[in-house]
Computed example of a mutant assay.
Amino acid sequence: MKQIFDFLRKISGGRLTQKQVDAANTAIATASDTVISDMLGIAVDVMSVSKFGVDLICGFEGKRLVAYDDGVGVWTIGFGTTIYPNGIRVKKGDTCTEAQAKVYMAHDLKKFEQAVNDAVNVPLNQNQFDALVSLTYNIGTGAFKDSTLLKRLNAGDYQAAANQFDVWVKAGGKTMQGLVNRRKVEKELFGKALK
């Protein structure tokens, strides 16, 4: 996305009006990545989580068809969904079917895939991307975008970025064994490309 707006600023003389930004956002939202890439003559590399990555995230999140408190006061349902596709927050007493849980998961994944695609400026292999989306799915897009992990990664220091997975093991200020276990698996997956 950044590449597109950089290109648009360049061809418009350096600045975009709000109207131009809004029009570009609308065009981008309705066009496929291939069309945008072809139109602008730039590479827009957009990655998606692999089936292995989806299964990994589902395994970590577990499937719950009745809303539950995630341990820090956030109501969650399905495979870790906290906000429904319509923008409404999950609340106590909510239920869903397995089919609905899968729809919520697919919707959620797009947001987290996009966050990783937008924030990372260095090449990733599929394992690295899957590990980063799993992390982001768990800690949230804001935390990922502000993380030291992302800063190290975008500086090209993949090993220092991998080591940052170990930082994200607390919930409500307490180290959680489930998060320790999850980060270990994500870190190992991310590190497969380092060998």
Rank of each mutant, 00 (worst) to 15 (best):
L109R: 07
D45W: 01
T34I: 07
Y84N: 08
N25M: 13
F112Q: 08
R89H: 12
L179A: 04
S134K: 02
K92S: 14
I57M: 12
K192G: 08
N117Q: 11
A143K: 14
V120M: 01
D38M: 05
M39T: 14
F60I: 02
T34D: 13
D55C: 09
D118N: 11
V167W: 10
S50E: 11
T26Q: 13
K91V: 15
K170R: 15
K151F: 06
L56F: 11
V103N: 07
A27E: 09
T17F: 13
A131D: 07
I139H: 09
N163M: 06
E188Y: 03
E113Q: 11
V49E: 05
A24M: 11
L194Y: 04
G140C: 10
K174M: 07
L194D: 02
S134V: 01
W168I: 07
K111P: 06
V103H: 06
V169K: 15
K174D: 06
R183Q: 09
V46E: 01
T81Y: 10
L8F: 12
K151S: 13
S12G: 07
A155W: 01
F144S: 01
Y104P: 11
D55S: 14
E186A: 02
K195D: 06
E113D: 09
K63I: 08
T141I: 14
A23D: 14
K10F: 11
A27C: 10
G80F: 12
G14S: 06
R9K: 13
R182P: 13
V180S: 12
M47W: 04
V66Y: 13
T82P: 00
T136I: 08
I4M: 10
K170F: 05
F79E: 10
A162N: 07
H107N: 15
P85W: 13
K174R: 14
Q159Y: 09
T30I: 11
A31W: 09
N181Y: 05
V54C: 12
V72H: 03
S50D: 07
P123S: 14
F112M: 14
D38C: 03
I42C: 02
A27D: 08
V180E: 11
G53I: 05
D6K: 08
R89P: 06
F79A: 07
L194S: 02
C58G: 07
Q3T: 00
Q3C: 00
P85T: 08
T30W: 09
A162Y: 02
A171V: 04
Q128E: 14
I11K: 15
A31R: 13
D22Y: 10
F129Y: 09
S134L: 03
R152G: 00
D94W: 12
D70G: 11
A67S: 14
Q126E: 09
A24E: 06
S48H: 15
